[in-house]
Structure formats: C-alpha cells, structure tokens
Amino acid sequence: MATAHLTVDRAEKFRIVCGILDRHGYRPSGLIPILQAIQREYQYLPEEVLTFVATSLDLPPARVFGVATFYAHFALEQKGKHVIRICDGTACHVKQSLPILNAIHGELGTSEKQKTSIDALFTVETVACLGACGLAPVVVVDEQVYGGMTPERAVALVNEIKMQEIAGDAQAAAAAVNGELHVH
C-alpha cells in the first residue's frame, strides 16, 4: 500500500510543480521562489525535477544546480521521515553537544557524510544556533524542541520514535492486507 500512496503522491506532486511554474509565469527570474515551493512539496529538490524546471524555464541545468547548491536552505538529497537537528552553536557546544551528536550517529549508523539512516527514517544535521541557548544543549526533532539534552536521553528519544514507526507500519500493513482482500 505504501508504494501506491507514493505513486499517487508523485503524480499529484508533478501537477503541483506544473502549477508552481504556471504561477511564476515560467520566468527564469522566479527560479528561487520556484525552488522554494518545490522543496515544500518534496522536502528536497530531486534531480529530475530540477531538470524539468530547467527545461521549462529555458535555463541550463547547470545554472539551476548552481542556484540550488548555493543556498544552504535547499537540499538535494532526500531527507529521512524525521529530521533531527543538533545545535552546535557556541552555548550548546560548550554544554557538550558533540557527545549527543556522536551518540545519535552511533545509534542510527549515520555520520557527517551519510546524514540519512539506511531505513530513511532519520536525517541527522547540525545547526549553528537555534536561538534557544538558555536550554543548551538543544536537539530539535521535526518541529519539537528538546532542551538540556544528554547522550542517553537523545538515544532513548530516537528509539522511542523508532518503536512508534514500527507499530505504525504494522497497522498500515494490516490495513493493506485487508484492502487487498477487499479488492479480490
């Protein structure tokens, strides 16, 4: 069932991309807002979509790639379902943010280079400052902020999310089996 959802999603997203291009009148000057809107849909900028955008705006793909890689805001790789941001600004760094980062990397098998876990559930990033220095060291999972973190708590948090995902999958699988039975 998961794949079926994904395909409907893709087709729908393609229509949305066409809509975004329509809204910006296919003007090359609108490239940055177009990329922002596309990233909102896909959570990142897939290469094929960038090629499509380049073709539609009559820009060389290398130029679009250049713009997309210039801004830290744009991601060119698919992110995991959950994004974990560990603050490594001065305050958090002093309060031992690096051991937290290392603990999470250790737990998820991620690294500085391989930011997304193999099961595509998590992406681990560092940020320079989240502006919540009073809570240092800070970890943000998706939109939720966790202050006064320790390596142990971070690992526990990650495992908790994992358990929820497994439980969710089992439910979805059950639903899928029922769905299949229903169809036949």
Binding site: T3, L6, T7, R10, F14, E48, V49
Partner: peptide
C-alpha cells in the same frame, strides 16, 4: 539518463 517516475505499478 534522466527520467522522472510519476506513477509506479505494484
């Protein structure tokens, strides 16, 4: 080698 998959049969 550039293609954009939009729907995938299962």
């Amino acid at each position: 080698d550039e293609v954009l998959p939009l729907m995938q049969a299962r």
